[in-house]
Amino acid sequence: MRHSTFGRGLALSLVALVLVAGCAQSSGSTAKPAESEGAGATAEASAGAGGGAEAATCQGSGDKGTVQLMINQWVGAEANVAVAACLLKQMGYDVKTNTLAEEVAWQGFSTGEVDVILENWGHPDLEQKYITDEKLAVDAGPMGVTGIIGWYVPGWMVEKYPDITDWNNLNKYADLFKTSESGDKGQFLGADPTFVQYDEALIANLGLDYKVVFSGSEAASITAFQQAEKNQTPLIGYFYDPQWLQNEIKLVQVKLPAWTEGCDADLKKVACDYPPYVLNKIVRAAWMDQGGDAVDFIKKFSWANSDQNEVADYITNGNMTAEEAAKKWIDAHPDTWKAWMPQG
């Protein structure tokens, strides 16, 4: 039945495509990618170990044990992990990474599959459960970045409607944000369901004439903001910083009633902005107890929003792999990371 062409037609055309792409990619190289089995492999020179090398290598002996770093599903987290992984490898550790949803990642502390979460966005329920109750994890201190969650509009709107950045004026512009999804109200683009959010309550309690339409994923939110800026279409929604998109396009935060301690205690009555998140590191308790100088390294690991955004931007818009981006940052900012390394 379908098998007759499933292989041949599709596959052969794919082969041709790959050949073309391959040649384009490695211009000058005459090797054909498809003939890989016969060709000799390039033997990679064994790299010199040690953290004191001039240019970052992200390689080392790997004999000091394995560190399992968890990567959140956003690029900033990938940047954290890339830099930490590179330095840990140079210290002689083997590094395993695992990309997971936040909620799921915490379960890794019970299974032993996650040693370190480098960027935790305050999950009081999980902290209660894993740190306080079950004592499986430990807070390893702030990681330097402050997380900001809020309501954002694309830059072009601020130029055209300067007073839109005050929530008091939002009802005036509600008509602007009407879409097929929101009916006769303005559309507020809600976030990826994995993120902390209470926009529906906020809108109700602030008396705004908006309806939350959930984007459903971070990718959907990013695409929406990209398109809104590019096509100059109105959009207001949940966004945050650090995020690489902040480096790519201009997003402006809308001022909500300021956050005060406890104003978000009852999420049904909340009528204030999101709190600033001092992002911290969470470490598996058992790993902490036996970890060696890697534990010290993780404890000391701390960098600024700008550092993270820089690496994230290399990855997203600079066409680099995470490791390449990390190397570039490490080479440029020795003062920052040398403070994390074990003494002597």
Binding site: S36, A41, A43, E44
Partner: peptide
Amino acid sequence: GIGLAIPLVADATTFPDTFAASFREP
């Protein structure tokens, strides 16, 4: 046999990037 012999003369743990190709950009 050929497949198993190659690792004896060359590093076969990672695929050589001599053949790298990607559709990403286009």
